[in-house]
Design a protein around this nucleic acid. Structure first.
Length: 498
DNA sequence: TTTTGAGTTGTTCGA
DNA sequence: GTCGAACAACTCAAA
């Protein structure tokens, strides 16, 4: 009787640098790759609509890679524990392997499953494919979790040299196929049966912008970090990473890595990215590289925080914010205008429309729209987080929670209360020619640069020349920026420590 | 033990 | 136009 192992894929949809896969292959004669679709177990943070679209593509791609290696992905629907037990019974598998996740619901579920499987005499192992360091490993001098990024990163980056970090594992050349995989009762459904794609096909914009899957992730990482045969994103000979520190702030340019969704679904991991950077640039401290590696550090920080403070997906980390005077009257139309990109503030609207169309928004603009929602509109950050959760292909509970709490001022290492982004000024600094705004708000594209970020200040003849009537072709501002800023500062005053 | 200084992403105001 | 100051309270580590 051959020894069979189940490899339970979750958000580690790759063969490269996959320690659970490597261990399962080493320890067993046959490996059964499995994905279980169990959205109820992730509630209330089951993947949103945009993330489901990505998941569909990612699972299809993983199945293709496995088939190229003589195996395939088995897809099941239903209770995870029952499915694992049933498959063990059907196939005679005695070992189950997976890579750990750190969000509260999944952690609780996985702990129960691990205890249950072990109680039934099954071998059960979990590994780390997601993070550079485990959340319980990296603590401050008093033994508690870090709440300040700079201190976290100082400590964390000490371990990032070649000596102190786990190496990225290579993908196996072939995956030991289990012959039992062809038994009919095991063939439950293909990816299509999971119903992940939208009924109304609003996903063309997503498909035009993104290619889910491990090979696309690796290709994008290579293009970004090392440049490829065509010379990289920025033009002949220019590697995007070299220019990252400056270009990443300009939403009109492809200056960011674009790896967020690939990272969320584990199509590529941080260890592989660091290895690629060192191979291409010799060191993690090379120009541009250091800035990008710090961003990976923020990703780590977010996951560590969620591990230590699981309630922060819905509750502010700073308890004073439980009595923050969020707006209570007439919130629905304000939220709807923000969601649809109809606030009358071009940079905010451009960002929200980019999100709606492509399932992604440039990082700089995410901060601007989040600041606008929480400070100028004074709507609770949870409302923004929920919208991002449903519309972002890269929606990640840890990153989303940290990002929104940071902007709102109630999280770890929060933005100081007085940091209220002025979307006009941000537009002038980071989109000076208005290229980004014109791309997503074509109705104001004929305005001169001087007014592109503040159409409401344009004199009537300028508006007429641009063929633009405010209130008809493009909204007047939903709220006054200067006034709402002062109201936000006053609101912060009311929750100050006594 | 206590103190000190620094801290992802900003804006406004007055000189 | 530019420039520095002011805008809290708290965390964390180093002195």
């Amino acid at each position: 009787m051959p020894d069979t192992a189940i490899l339970w894929f979750r958000r580690d949809l790759r063969l490269d640098d996959n320690p659970a896969l490597t261990r399962a292959m080493a320890a067993s004669d046959l490996v059964l790759p499995l994905y279980i679709h169990a959205p109820a177990e992730e509630s209330p943070w089951a993947p949103g609509a945009a993330a489901r679209w990505w998941l569909h593509g990612s699972l299809s791609a993983l199945d293709r890679s496995l088939r190229e290696r003589g195996s395939r992905l088995l897809i099941a629907t239903g209770d995870s524990r029952d499915t694992l037990l049933r498959l063990c019974a059907l196939t005679g598998a005695t070992r189950v392997y997976w890579n750990r996740l750190y969000d509260p619901a999944t952690r609780a579920r996985d702990t129960r499953i691990k205890l249950d499987l072990r109680a039934r005499g099954l071998h059960c192992e979990s590994h780390n494919a997601l993070l550079l360091r485990e959340p319980w490993e990296l603590l401050n001098t008093t033994g508690g979790p870090y709440k300040v990024y700079s201190a976290f990163w100082r400590k964390s980056s000490l371990g990032l040299d070649r000596l102190g970090r786990d190496a990225a594992l290579p993908a196996p050349a072939d995956c030991k196929r289990s012959p039992t995989m062809d038994e009919p009762e095991l063939v439950q459904s293909g990816v299509d049966a999971l119903d992940l794609l939208p009924r109304i096909r609003w996903d063309q914009g997503l498909a035009a912008s993104w290619q889910p899957g491990e090979s696309a992730a690796l290709a994008r990482a290579r293009r970004f970090i090392a440049g490829d045969a065509t010379g990289g994103v920025g033009g002949a000979g220019l590697v995007a990473l070299d220019d990252y520190a400056q270009a990443r702030d300009l939403p009109a340019r492809p200056g960011t890595s674009g790896l967020s969704a690939h990272l969320h679904f584990g199509e590529i991991g941080p260890r592989r990215l660091l290895a690629m950077i060192e191979d291409a640039h010799g060191s993690l401290a090379a120009p541009g590289a250091e800035t990008f590696v710090r961003e990976l550090g923020w990703r780590e920080f977010a996951h560590h925080l969620l591990y230590h403070f699981p309630q922060t997906t819905t509750e502010p980390l700073d308890p004073r914010f439980t009595c923050f005077p969020w707006r209570t009257e007439g919130t629905a139309p304000l939220l709807a205008a923000w969601q649809r990109g109809r606030t009358g503030v071009p940079l905010v609207d451009a960002g929200m429309r980019e999100l709606w169309r492509t399932g992604w928004m440039h990082n700089r603009v995410r901060m601007v729209v989040a600041s606008y929602l929480t400070k100028n509109l004074r709507l609770p950050w949870q409302a923004g987080a929920a919208w991002f959760w449903d519309t972002l292909v890269d929606a990640d509970l840890a990153a989303n929670t940290l990002g929104w709490q940071w902007t709102a001022g109630c999280g770890a290492d929060a933005a100081p209360y007085f940091r209220v982004f002025n979307p006009v000024r941000q537009g002038e600094r980071f989109d000076p020619q208005g290229d980004y705004v014109r791309r997503w708000c074509p109705e104001i594209s004929r305005l001169p640069d001087k007014f592109i970020h503040q159409p409401w200040t344009a004199p009537a003849p300028i508006l007429a020349a641009a063929g633009l009537t405010l209130g008809r072709d493009y909204p007047r501002p939903l709220v006054d920026l200067a006034g709402s800023r002062l109201e936000a500062l006053a609101a912060f005053d009311r929750i100050k420590a006594p």
